[in-house]
Nucleic acid binder design. Structure first.
Lengths: 68, 68
DNA sequence: CCCAAATGGAAAGTACACTTTACATTGTTG
DNA sequence: CAACAATGTAAAGTGTACTTTCCATTTGGG
């Protein structure tokens, strides 16, 4: 899964640490999401979407992962 | 998090097992989601939404969980 | 240039999504 | 009622999301 987190966060002019605090997760979690080290839980995805006033689908891009 | 999985699945007239096979997860996973034993991963949420031709937000209802 | 702020990322531990196996319960339907 | 289909659910194991701690690298402003 890809995501537009870094792009969207920078457009809002906020730091990873500020976003992390707002979402009540660690800064490393934000960094890991932005750099694709892992995917968010659905709860975190909802928090992120709500924070930015967007839908999950606008932020996280699912393209038929062929990982079997 | 609540979800409308059971409702939507029944409206389509398909069995838990059929849905499970289509999504490539176990039948128990579907049952557990329908009965709220746990939340789906975001990948599974995307698969479910895509399967039903709906958005994640239409199926999974996030209401500011106050679980801290 | 220099320092500090911002970010990248590894390591070890915890929580939970998901699997397989197994069994019990609840409807049908013959 | 008998027998089978559909669902509920528990237990134990695995993978991964997320945490805390720690250090390295990058970047911008004085």
């Amino acid at each position: 899964m890809n995501n537009r987190l870094e792009e969207i966060r920078k457009k809002r002019g906020i730091k990873q640490e500020e976003l992390a605090k707002a979402l009540e997760v660690s800064r490393q979690t934000i960094g890991s999401l932005e750099n694709g080290r892992y995917n968010p839980s659905i709860l975190l995805a909802f928090k992120i979407a709500r924070f930015f006033g967007m839908s999950i689908e606008e932020i996280f891009i699912y393209e038929e992962e062929n990982n079997v």
